[in-house]
């Protein structure tokens, strides 16, 4: 699946998106896998209360299932308007 990063999450991880091979059942499982990859991921995902997540471009929770998901995005709380 494609994993996208925005704002300071993108800056901390250093890339805007990447293709990830995963069997993660939920968003939180995917976060745990990413945390284990490298220190920059562990730093970006250190406090998930500071993060929001969208699965296939719909806002959701970290316990949301990932079955069939094509795109997961992580970003800080939004500041539009």
């Amino acid at each position: 699946m494609d994993v996208l990063y925005f704002a300071w999450v993108r800056e901390r991880i250093g890339i805007p998106r990447e293709a990830v091979e995963t069997q993660a059942g939920t968003v939180m499982d995917l976060v745990e896998e990413l945390r284990g990859k490298e220190e920059r991921y562990a730093a970006a995902f250190a406090d998930i209360s500071a993060l929001r997540v969208a699965v296939d471009q719909q806002l959701t929770d970290f316990d949301a299932p990932l079955s069939g998901a094509r795109e997961v995005a992580f970003f800080p709380p939004m500041t539009g308007g």
Binding site: F6, A54, L59, F75, M78, G80, G81
Partner: peptide, 14 residues
């Protein structure tokens, strides 16, 4: 519309 697009539309200001 204003309240929701401030915190539920994916924009980030810098």
């Amino acid at each position: 519309l204003m309240d929701y697009l401030k915190s539920r539309a994916p924009f980030w200001k810098r």
